[in-house]
Design a protein around this nucleic acid. Structure first.
Lengths: 328, 328
DNA sequence: GTGAAAGCGCTAACAA
DNA sequence: TTGTTAGCGCTTTCAC
């Protein structure tokens, strides 16, 4: 256990409270502040966070809950959060629910008491659950909109609409949407966006897929092809890349025979061949923005804080090599 | 602020100390224990971690330091750590140094006081620094060996040797190694493993690369090709996949013209085309094992704990589609 | 087996 | 501006 306030106080010849004030920007004479800071540095003093937390109830931690760290989408969000937090003196408490909503509820409960605020990525928990479990004054929700809570996300609708328009413009009259996990907020929104197809005279089939993974994409590739669609939009890039691989290995050419569009623009999307046309999403910025929003919330602490902030970041189609003119 | 020991004590009609004992497995009569546990559950009581930490110096947190969360290697290690920790009541404190060693030193210092123990992934910090900054009683180092600290890693040498033998067996007489970041522990070890080439009559050229990323791989692809080698081994999969893309787009066929071998077997390695032959590494197991080792260390606390544990997990070549018989 | 009392390191009144 | 005092919630002697 390192030196304590008392040690520093003795070294400088002042009282512990003066040291405390000097360290945390209270009202102290410039001279004493300097002396204290000096001594603190010399002794290697760092205020004990536990003791602080005990008094003012602030742990100095921010909790982040994600559904699955194996999903590159969330690791990019995580990177953003982490990069923002490094410039503050908050620490990051990370929890991975492993896609288990029961567990998620429990972690939310546990995390809450070890953090000053929570960043929640939970695509599958019901709105009602979220509202019950989360304190609006100390929570920011990522990747979805929940009315009564602060949120940072993209609006999935315009991206999907652009994707459909893109395919329609290339002459596709029949497309398939490979859906995401049941209950997913963004999947629901994306299906809404799909409605534009009707106006464009494009037929849409929906193919269900259990999980939004590469392997599931391999499966879904065959299903999507069987619908007879010439263009496929996938819930996310992992699914899209899985389909890509499957189609290619079946001798179906992409984009000559079938066009494929992903979602999220994960790093892998521009590393596969052909490079994936996808709806890009500023994942890292979502993380950063969410962290910033949370810290603002924690700083203000104005009790009844009007209406919760809803931040919508821009997202749109990035055309690469996996989409092309419809066959014949 | 939820209920406190005192609240529970009052509810049951005992003293706070009895509640404390009942909650943390002290000596209490079975009857009182049950009563206390009951009341605690009813009130939703959870012991305040800060108060606990203040007394016994144990925060209930484990710190994990990684160099870059954008690198899929580390996110898989992270997943392993996280999955192990979820079965315990430790929380995970995560820090990303963003490949900045100065910052790394600082975080190590900061993290230390908020955690009971540290898990360190730091390929570039010097051994001496690590030894200075880390307490052997509460630290586990990942992905490298530092004599005086507990470590969990693979031995990179056999994998590289298998890779060279594999290429030699396929008739390659001249290979290139695309190196990793200067100062990297595993890069150094991999170069050692390369020595076997001489015995096999295989010529080796080393190509430097600034960072172990996809983009750097794009660059390195041209350099490696220019050496005239017919087989290339890359420091990691990201580099390998970058090269793959570059060569393919230059019209060089893989594996017909050139064979490529990666390192680490990240998820992407089996999602690209052709699927990458690579030296697989049990990343998630490294994370799990390291977490387990740390918790053991923290539990034992036997002051002078003999020699630090060095755990070597198995790794070896996984042959996929990016390697083939040498041309002509 | 249980209660009373003290104190972990810090900060926030309240005096001075 | 500074020092004194009290106490955050918990555990841990020490009596009983």
């Amino acid at each position: 256990m390192g030196p304590t306030v008392t040690d520093v106080a003795k070294a400088v010849g002042v009282s512990p409270s003066t040291v405390s004030r000097a360290m945390s920007g209270g009202i102290v004479s410039p001279a004493t502040r300097e002396a204290v800071l000096d001594a603190a540095a010399k002794l290697g003093y760092q205020p004990n966070r536990a003791a602080r937390a005990l008094i003012n109830g602030r742990t100095g931690n921010v909790g982040l809950l994600v559904p699955d760290l194996e999903n590159p989408y969330y690791t990019e969000v995580l990177k953003g959060v982490s990069m923002h937090l490094r410039r503050t003196d908050y620490h990051l408490l990370l929890a991975d629910s492993d896609e288990d909503t029961a567990w998620e509820r429990e972690m939310l409960h546990t995390l809450r008491q070890s953090s000053d605020g929570l960043l929640i990525c939970s695509p599958r928990l019901a709105d009602a659950d979220l509202v019950t479990l989360a304190d609006p004054a100390t929570t920011v929700v990522l990747n979805r909109i929940v009315d009564s809570l602060a949120c940072v996300t993209i609006d999935p609708v315009p991206g999907i609409q652009q994707a459909v328009q893109h395919l329609a413009a290339l002459g596709h009259r029949h497309i398939a949407y490979v859906a995401g996990p049941p209950g997913s907020w963004s999947d629901a929104r994306r299906r809404e966006g799909l409605a534009i197809a009707e106006e464009l005279g494009v037929k849409v089939d929906v193919v269900q897929s259990a999980t939004p993974t590469f392997d599931a994409g391999t499966l879904a590739g065959d299903l999507a092809l069987a619908t007879g669609a010439s263009g496929i939009i996938a819930f996310n890039d992992l699914l899209a890349i899985g389909m890509l691989n499957r189609l290619l290995s079946r001798g179906v050419s992409v984009p000559a025979d079938v066009s494929i569009i992903g979602n999220d623009d994960i790093a892998m999307a521009s590393m596969c061949a052909p490079k994936l046309t996808t709806i890009s999403s500023p994942k890292e910025r979502i993380g950063q923005s969410a962290a910033a929003t949370l810290l603002r919330l924690l700083k203000d602490r104005t009790g009844a804080s009007s209406t919760p902030e809803h931040i919508l970041l821009p997202a749109g189609l990035t055309v690469r090599a996996s989409t092309g003119v419809a066959p014949q």
